[in-house]
Nucleic acid binder design. Sequence first.
DNA 1: AAAATTTAATTGACATATCAATTATTTAAA
DNA 2: TTTAAATAATTGATATGTCAATTAAATTTT
Lengths: 143, 143
Amino acid sequence: MEKLVNIIFYNIDHSIRLYRMFAQKKLREHGFKITIDQWLVIKCILENPDITQHELSELVFKDNASVTRIIDLLIKAGYLEKETNPEDRRKFMLHVTKEGEEVIRNVHEVVLQNRSIALNGINQKELETADAVLRKIIANCKQ
Amino acid sequence: MEKLVNIIFYNIDHSIRLYRMFAQKKLREHGFKITIDQWLVIKCILENPDITQHELSELVFKDNASVTRIIDLLIKAGYLEKETNPEDRRKFMLHVTKEGEEVIRNVHEVVLQNRSIALNGINQKELETADAVLRKIIANCKQ
DNA sequence: AAAATTTAATTGACATATCAATTATTTAAA
DNA sequence: TTTAAATAATTGATATGTCAATTAAATTTT
C-alpha cells in the first residue's frame, strides 16, 4: 500500500481526530461538562440569534439529525431552550440560557489556548497554503 | 465569533467530512457494500498479514473498540475471518477471505479516482506544505 | 510458584454521523 | 381553494468514536 502517512487524507483525518481529543481532554481537565460539538452549536446560536436548526446544520457541517440530537442534549443540560416560531410553526426559536452563556464565556479561553498549542511552530504563510488546499478539496468534493 | 471558515480546524473538519461523504457515495454508486473505514481495515490487514487488532487501531487512528466492531462487521459480511493466535492466546490472527480480497481489488480503482478528483487543481508544492502543517498539528496535539 | 502488573480484546454507555422515512407545516400549482 | 410540492424538524436504524470497566492471558515481581 502507498504508505498511509503519504496520503493527505489520512493526515487530515488524523490531525482533526487528534485535535478533537486534545481539545476535549483540555475541557475535561478544566471541569467543563460539554463536548466540542455542543460548544460549537451554542456558540453559533449566540452569534446568530435567529438561526434555524437547518441553517445551523449547514454552518457547523452537520446533519439535521445530529443537530436535533445535540440540541436535545443541550436543553437537558440547561444550556438552551427552544420555542416554536409563531411566524412559521415548522421552525423553532433557539435561546441560550444564562448557564449556556456562562459556559461559553468560560470555555473561550481554553479554546484559544488549544488552538494556539495545536498550531505551534506553523507560520502564517504555511497556514494560508494549507487552508487554501483544504478549501480546494472542499470545493472539489461538492461537485 | 471569528468567522468559522477562518479557523483552520473547521476547514480540516469540513474537508475530511466532505471527502468521506463523497468517497462513500462513489462506492455506493458503484454498487459496493462496504464503508470507507471497513475498506481501510481490510487493506491494512492485507498489507500487514500478522498485525494485531491493537496495532491495527494505531495504524488507522482508531480506538480498539471501533476496530473490534468494524472487524465484527467484516466477519459478518464474509470479508474476514479470525482465529486465536496459538502463540499468544490474547491475540487473534486475522485472515482476509477471497471475497474480501476481491472487494479490495475492485474498490481500488474507485478510490484512486476519488483522490484524484478531490485533489484536482492542487499542485505538489501546495500539497506538501499542507501535509507538513497537518503533521505539525498532529505532533503538537500528541503532547 | 504465587501474586501483582501489563497487555489484548471485548463490552457497555453515551455522543455523533449518515441515510431513509415520517410528521407537521407552509408554499406553489392546478 | 383544494391539491401537490417543498421545507423544517424528528425519529429509527446502523456505523463509528470515545471513555471506562471487564475478561482473559501473558509477563514480571516478589
